[in-house]
Every structure is written in C-alpha cells, then in structure tokens.
Amino acid sequence: MKRREFIASAAALLVSPRRSWAQETRRRLGFLAVGDGSGQAINQTERALFDGLQNYGWIDGRNLIIEYRFSQPPDRLPASVADLIALSPDALIVAGPQATAALKSATATIPIVFVAVGDPVGLGLVQSLSRPGGNITGLTTVVPEDFLGKRIEILRELVPGASKIALLVNPGNPMHRLTLAEEYLSRTARKLSMALPIVEATTAEELDVAFASAAAQHVDAIVDVGDVLTWVEAPRVIALAAKYHLPANYFFRHSAKGGGLSVYGPDISDLFRRAAGYVDKILKGAKPADLPVQQPTKFELIINMKTAKALGLTMPPSLLVRADEVIE
C-alpha cells in the first residue's frame, strides 16, 4: 500500500467512528409553532427559543434536529400533531392553549413543554403548577386576577371619561371561556364603574363583524384579550381599530410595533427563551412531572405615540413614565 493511501485509510478509521457517534447522539425536537400565519415560517417571537437553546449548547443541525409543524391556519392542527407524533421526537414544544391540548391528547409518553398557556391547571393540562404530573410542563402566561382591570385602566388613562370598553374574545379559545366568566366580568365592571360588552371572533372574517359590533354599541375603546387569532391577524385587528377610530390595548408586543396604540402583557419572547432550559433538562433525562410550571416574570407596557397622535389622544405623563418602551 502506498504511503498516501495508508494515511487516507487511517484517517478514515479515525474520523468515521466519531462522525457516526455524533449522528447517533443527535436529538430530535418537535416544535408545534403558531408561526407567521402562512404555515411556512416561525414568527419572530418564537425564534427566541433558538437563542435559548444555543445558550445550553443545542444547535439545530449539529446536535439537535428541530422538526417544525404549524398550528395555523387552524385546519392544519390535526395533521401537524399527527406528523410530529409519528416522528417519535425526544421532546415536543408547543405554543398556545388549543395546540397544547391537542398535543397532550395525542401522546402520554413523549415529553411536552408548552409556552403561553394562560391557565394550564384550569384547562386540565397539569395537576398543579408546582407538581404538573404526567408528560407535560412548561411556561404559563397566568396573570394576577386584576390583570384585565389594569389593561382597562390603561385605556381609561388614554381616554379619560371612558365608560364603555369592549372586550375582543375568541369563544373557541378555552382560556377565554375559563377566565372571562360572567361573574368575573360583572365584578370587574362594577369595580371599574363601566360597561364591558363582549365582541367575539373565531375567524379572520369575524374580526370585521366584531369591530363593527363594537362601533355600533358606541364603545369608547377596545381590549384585545389575546389569542392565537389576534396574534396572527394583528395587522387586520390594528387596521380595524384605526378604521373605527377605537383606542385599543393589545396583549402582544408585535401589535404595538405594527401600529397598535398600547400593549400590556407578559414578555412572550422571554418565555420561549426560558422554555429552552426545560428542553435542555428533558433531553438530559429530567421528567416533565418533576419540573414546576413557570410563570412570567417580565411584563411590558408599550405605547405607540404615532398612533396616539392619529387618534387625537393626549398622552398622560404618568403613563409615559411607566412605559417600558415608547414608539415614536
């Protein structure tokens, strides 16, 4: 054997086992994402998960394979769940309550980490926040009971004298049915001394009807309670608020970036970044049942001054001082 051939053969023996070992230890993560609404791409907020995973040494395509499926549009959800389960991933990560419930119903064995589920206990996804049990844990958007009241107060500061503020809800979202019970709304309305009519939308087209209904009821402002629908359809919701000249408060940061008047809610990007820590623990052998459900630690108040001016609103200095970000 020639010297050059011998060296090449020896190098192959050294490299091949190492390459094979790397392939065998590559882990698989299934990601059931909301995406950007097209069913083709991860949205910017969800990308914070990748930053978190890299902090723990997990790199997609190197030691981790991330399989993406999307829960939006809604008719894709059953097929997306079936596809991910069929891949037998080492762990699953999922965004939103409807998709989380669908994924949990599909497997009792594959570990699941959820993100942005408001009340996982009330929805029957976990036994308790401290001891979730089963194959699922994650990060909730659960907020204090007076959270809705705080959002309404923000609008009342922006629209002094407001006496009727509509709540935009999705009756298909189990979280809305759970948290906006009639007794709670009546108590909140009495406490704030105002009317809180509900307008509903489960599809993009119904958003138009909901805003027309709010305008017909002569509301002073509107609160987007927060849902996958209004996340994906944020541009439409913002345009409708502008069309009907309605000051609005939104749940998600990107609504303010897209022209929404105000946002108050948990930092969802931070939740995705923190979810990477649970993925890391699970891939290293931890059981979801032993990982307490985590709650949000960062909330954001964002004000869009350009939109405020377009609506003819005078921004209270007290609100500007409290804002985490002011968009000029």
Results as ranks from 00 to 15, higher is better:
Val219Ser: 00
Lys284Trp: 08
Val199Asn: 02
Asn249His: 08
Gln294Ile: 10
Thr307Tyr: 04
Ala216Lys: 13
Val199Asp: 00
Val279Gln: 13
Val225Leu: 07
Met194Cys: 14
Arg187Asp: 08
Pro316Ala: 04
Ala241Phe: 06
Met315His: 07
Asp208His: 14
Ile302Thr: 12
Gly260Ala: 11
Leu311Ser: 02
Ala275Thr: 11
Leu319Trp: 03
Trp231Gly: 04
Ala289Trp: 06
Lys284Ser: 10
Thr307Asn: 06
Lys287Ile: 05
Glu205Ala: 15
Lys298Pro: 07
Glu206Thr: 10
Ala286Lys: 06
Leu301Phe: 09
Lys298Ile: 14
Ala289His: 08
Met305Glu: 15
Lys281Cys: 07
Pro316Lys: 03
Ile303Tyr: 01
Ser262Ile: 03
His245Met: 12
Pro316Thr: 04
Gln294Leu: 14
Lys284Leu: 10
Lys298Ala: 12
Thr202Met: 12
Ile222Gln: 03
Glu206Trp: 12
Ala286Gln: 07
His245Glu: 13
Ala286Cys: 06
Ser262Glu: 04
Ala214Thr: 04
Ile303Lys: 04
Ala204Gly: 11
Ala189His: 05
Phe299Gly: 04
Ala256Thr: 09
Ala201Leu: 05
His254Val: 12
Leu192Asp: 11
Met305Ser: 14
Tyr244Asn: 02
Ala215Arg: 10
Asp280His: 15
Tyr264Gln: 02
Arg190Glu: 14
Pro317Ile: 09
Val293Ile: 12
Ala310Gly: 10
Lys309Met: 13
Ala241Trp: 01
Ile302Cys: 09
Ala308His: 06
Leu301Met: 07
Arg190Thr: 14
Val237Tyr: 07
Gln295Cys: 09
Tyr264Thr: 03
Lys309Tyr: 13
Ser318Lys: 08
Asp290Lys: 11
Leu229Ile: 04
Gln217Trp: 10
Asp290Ile: 08
Asp220Asn: 08
Met305Gln: 15
Ile222Ala: 03
Thr188Arg: 13
Thr314Glu: 10
Val219Pro: 01
Val219His: 00
